[in-house]
Each structure stands twice: as structure tokens, then as C-alpha cells.
């Protein structure tokens, strides 16, 4: 149970820590204040708690696929915020798309953790194991995020921006693919053909498989729609990021 808890909490924490670190690094590289991150984290944690409390009601929406649909909507919203951030070079220093992306990512990942932990509320005997597993998973995830942040901002500015752009594009692709998977699970879009099967090479439920899922959205048996969404969003962001700011674009603005 400890390992299961560690892996689950770590997977969700890593996903959130990745986007928090990269966008915070992005913000620092563009000379913006870091205050928005506090607002985003508090909003995200509060949102996750509200969502977890109302999980049962939400799951009944849309003919009992409410949770899948709401989660998919959040994934697409994060993806859209990142696309907005990259679309106009002048808006790259704007803080509101980053605030939206981090808040929703924290709601999404925090909700998964709270839902898992709520399953042990009645089982007092398992609490110490679950608490320890959560502490270990959260500690590893947060530490990895902090080190990633320092790694990004520690690079030379041009290289740091390229690394941050790549990580943002991977994260957005992952969000889009996960959103599509949730809609497939909700039967809102057809499953489509399976593009590859690497379950024998690297199982999704293995520790490495779960870590890669958190970092780059690894799927052992993705459908054509997931691959299309991932590749489409990744390439779109990549093209957006290739457009460099010109003098006329200025330095952008934020709240």
C-alpha cells in the first residue's frame, strides 16, 4: 500500500510540479514577479478540495460520465491557456495564462490525490502507511520540481527559454492526449485504432511507466485520436514558440 500511495501521489505531484516549475522559471526568465504562483497554488488547492467534496455529484452529470467530462474540460483549458501564452510573442510575459494553467493543473492533480486519500478515511489502521506514502511521494515530487526550476533558470537565458518551451509543449501535448482519452472513456468520441502497443516493453503501471506518464504523457496503447491530439498541440506550440518577439511586440503586459 505504501508503494501504491507513493507512486500515485508522486505521479500527480510530478505532473503539477513540472508545470509549476517550468512556468515559474518562464516567469523569472521574462523578468516577471513570482507573486502569481502563490495565488495560483492557493486557488488550485482550494479548487481541488471543493471538487473532491462534490465528486459524487459531479460524477452523476452527463449520464454518469461527469467526472471524465469535467476532467477533460480542465485538461483542454490548461492546454488552451498554454497555447494563448505561446501564440503571441508579446503576451509571453503575461501572467494570467500561467495563473490559469497552474491553478487548473493543481485542481486536476490535487483532486486525484484527495480522492485517493479519502478512500482511507474510514480505515484508521492504514492511515500511518498512507500518510507516510503521501509524504514520500509529495516530498519527492516537490523536490524534483524545485530542482527542475533551478535547472531551468540556471541555464543561459536563450537555452533556458528553449528548454522551457520544449517542456511546456510536452506538457500541453500530454494534457490534450489525456483530455481525449477521458472523452473516449466517456464515449463522447470513438476509440479509434490503436497506434502502437509497447505494454510488453514498458508497462504503463510499472514505476518507470507511471513516471514517464507524468513527465511526457507515456501511453503503452494510445489511440489514433490521442496521438493526433498530442502531436497537434505539441507541433502548434512548437511553431508558436519559433516566432520570436520583435521590437514592435514590446515586452507584453500582465496583471
Amino acid at each position: 500500500m505504501l508503494l501504491t500511495t507513493v507512486v500515485l501521489v508522486l505521479r500527480e505531484m510530478l505532473e503539477a510540479a513540472l508545470i509549476v516549475s517550468v512556468l515559474l522559471g518562464w516567469s523569472v526568465l521574462h523578468g516577471r514577479s513570482r507573486r502569481w504562483i502563490g495565488v495560483a497554488l492557493v486557488t488550485g488547492i482550494a479548487g481541488a478540495a471543493v471538487y473532491a467534496v462534490n465528486a459524487a455529484a459531479v460524477s452523476e452529470w452527463f449520464d454518469y460520465v461527469g467526472m471524465e467530462v469535467v476532467n477533460a474540460a480542465m485538461q483542454f483549458a490548461v492546454c488552451t491557456a498554454l497555447l494563448v501564452l505561446a501564440a503571441r510573442p508579446a503576451a509571453r510575459a503575461a501572467t494570467w495564462p500561467m495563473l490559469v494553467a497552474v491553478s487548473l493543473a493543481v485542481v486536476r492533480e490535487g483532486f486525484e490525490i484527495l480522492l485517493y486519500l479519502s478512500g482511507f478515511v474510514a480505515d484508521r489502521g492504514a492511515w500511518s502507511t498512507v500518510a507516510l506514502g503521501s509524504a514520500l511521494g509529495a516530498g519527492i515530487g516537490i523536490s524534483a520540481g524545485a530542482l527542475l526550476f533551478y535547472l531551468v533558470v540556471g541555464l543561459r537565458r536563450v537555452r533556458a527559454l528553449r528548454v522551457a518551451e520544449l517542456l511546456i509543449a510536452l506538457f500541453a501535448g500530454n494534457m490534450a492526449a489525456q483530455g481525449v482519452l477521458l472523452l473516449i472513456q466517456a464515449d463522447w468520441i470513438p476509440g479509434g485504432v490503436q497506434v502502437w502497443n509497447t505494454a510488453g516493453l514498458l508497462a504503463e503501471d510499472s514505476v518507470l511507466g507511471q513516471l514517464l506518464y507524468a513527465l511526457i504523457g507515456y501511453e503503452a496503447t494510445p489511440s489514433i485520436w490521442q496521438v493526433t491530439a498530442y502531436a497537434g498541440v505539441f507541433c502548434l506550440l512548437f511553431v508558436f514558440f519559433l516566432r520570436r518577439p520583435t521590437r514592435a511586440d514590446g515586452n507584453g503586459s500582465g496583471p
Binding site: L136, I142, S143, L147
Partner: peptide, 14 residues
């Protein structure tokens, strides 16, 4: 402080 703590936590917890 943050980088040292992060590395400490990472190594100890792993």
C-alpha cells in the same frame, strides 16, 4: 537552502 533541502529530500525519500 532550497536546492540543498530539495536534494536532501529527494535522496532520502528515494
Amino acid at each position: 537552502v532550497v536546492a540543498t533541502l530539495a536534494m536532501l529530500v529527494l535522496v532520502v525519500f528515494v
